[in-house]
Write a protein that binds this DNA or RNA. Structure first.
Lengths: 333, 333
DNA sequence: TTGTAAGCGTTATCAA
DNA sequence: TTGATAACGCTTACAA
């Protein structure tokens, strides 16, 4: 069942059928009705592959993420879909598991014309490769921006400022012994930014940085659990732990409960990202909320703008975060 | 940069270039080398749209899920990707937010030849629509099977048996007052199956079913929190709560802590699915583990088999679940 | 208002 | 072993 068959059945030409399908050109009402009836009766669906080949665009966007198991992406992606749809684009998701090989396979969809643009959370391919892609194809970085080696459009929050704000908040609660749990993934620039924010926050409060309070710890409640064990066994344990992700914070809280500390009373805990788990733990987690809906929206709009105007130069958008105080930190007294 | 240009630059025909690309037919070593060199130098990538139009297949599979925020899908999807890739298929993900309109748009990718097959977690379109799709296109249901109205291939666990097993386990711990939290989403047949398993488990232990112990509650820790409140205010509160999902169980545990009950001691709690949160809570959650990797693998293989053999009839595969006992239920004494 | 036909980039048939 | 060419299904000048 193709357009030719529809044309035959409705006694007209493929051109007219195409006009009816796309609401383009001029078609007499009678013919239009006849064609529409045939389409309805036969259940004909235009072949997008033929159409894409002809029009040289797919009206599809690819959203690449390192993992599907981080709920942080959820709201962003919902927003992406919504705004893509509003602009007649479909969204396809790809999970890369931080495998550069797999990332390249998905980026191939750009070269091979299967998608018109890519929106990517932090990838693992090299800055050179990213620059090569952004130079030629529509690309937007979402929730990250590279260092000076990267030249690409991006939409994200000011991670340094966010970490600074959280430290300032903990200081305002009276804390002086503030530990931090942060990753050290090469290329994960927002971790570097958050570390800088943490250090500046301490410095601004006149608190010296203590090496034993800054622990490397990947995104995982189990690693955070172990890190909490290290921290609480220090000669001078911290009074607050800024875990820099909600799942790490959840791991810390679990440790505290299981070792006789009351989180939010004996030791304060803060997270980052405001994902579901931050409300599930007891107590709930004080955290930094990223403006997910807006992140998704701005990123998609930027991507579509670049698709429509290939000469557009790269652009960075920084959105505002917010600090959500919950029970894992003491109330100001 | 197209195949014609590559042919020109390497002084041969498009046919030969195509043979080189696809390792088909016969090409002399010298020519092959010449063509490959040009491809390398120019960075040529074959246009998949042209190829798909010609070959009438895309080598792409669509995996449709209701939401990305349920981490339960994560491991299944990783497995899907792995086995699809091993069979030269790419996997595209689509999130539908349980919106039948959006589901239809993605199913359109089948009609419009953008993907060769669809693997779907529980959708919201009608059984009739699903039957229409499965009759004509490769389709596999993953983690669900419809009722008698649905005729489609599926891969899932025996949900009734799983619920039965959990009730039997709770009974073996000495419980007689066992409540259950379950959804009541129309068409979510596995919820019906789990209810049946719950009832049979009680019956087998000679425990009468009590209406006030069976609460409808959607997938959400907040609703479960409220449900726990209702249960614990009954004249005769349950001694065990089978929450039928880990996030519900987490909500129950949160309620118990906040109201002076010790979960796993005063009241036992059980979940379902064995997602990350089941290890984050204090105590960890006793739950049913679905064989995620195997579910993804079998579903993908079934889908690919159906693509390769359109005359294949529908097939149902049931995989074994397992019960994981953790701290949210008392140890056998 | 309608139809003819070229062309999008590829693969595969067939002849050389 | 190679190359010319038709075909895949569609959109869109252009001509009628």
């Amino acid at each position: 069942m193709d357009i030719k068959e529809v044309a035959r059945l409705s006694g007209t030409s493929v051109a007219t059928v195409s006009r009816v399908i796309n609401n383009s050109g001029t078609v007499s009402p009678e013919r239009r009705a006849r064609v529409q009836k045939v389409i309805e009766q036969t259940g004909y669906h235009p072949n997008h592959v033929g159409r894409n080949l002809r029009t040289q665009c797919s009206q599809k966007l690819l959203v690449m993420m390192p993992t599907i198991s981080n709920p942080f992406y959820s709201d962003i992606i919902v927003s992406c879909e919504e705004h893509a749809r509003a602009n007649d684009y479909g969204v396809l998701l790809a999970v890369t598991n931080r495998n550069p090989q797999i990332e390249r396979q998905y980026f191939d969809m750009l070269y091979t014309k299967q998608v018109d643009g890519v929106l990517s959370f932090l990838p693992t391919i090299s800055p050179q490769e990213i620059n090569r892609i952004t130079a030629e194809y529509p690309f937007v970085a979402c929730c990250w921006r590279g260092d000076e080696r990267i030249n690409a459009s991006y939409v994200c929050i000011d991670n340094e400022r966010a970490a600074y704000d959280m430290v300032a908040y903990l200081v305002s609660l009276g804390h002086r012994r503030i530990a931090a749990l942060n990753g050290s993934y090469p290329g994960r620039t927002y971790e570097i930014e958050r570390e800088a924010g943490y250090r500046k926050g301490l410095a601004h409060a006149g608190i010296p940085y203590r090496e034993e309070y800054y622990l490397k710890c990947d995104y995982s409640h189990t690693e955070a659990y172990q890190a909490a064990d290290r921290l609480m066994h220090l000669p001078e344990p911290p009074t607050a732990i800024f875990a820099m992700s909600d799942d790490r914070a959840a791991g810390v809280i679990k440790y505290l409960w299981e070792h006789g500390y009351k989180p939010g009373v004996d030791v304060d805990v803060a997270g980052f990202d405001n994902v579901t788990v931050s409300e599930i733990t007891t107590p709930s987690i004080t955290t930094i909320a990223q403006p997910c809906a807006q992140l998704g929206k701005e990123a998609i709009l930027l991507l579509i703008a670049r698709i429509k105007d290939p000469s557009m130069s790269n652009k960075g958008i920084i959105l505002a975060h917010s600090l959500i105080a919950r029970g894992s930190t003491r109330t100001i007294s």
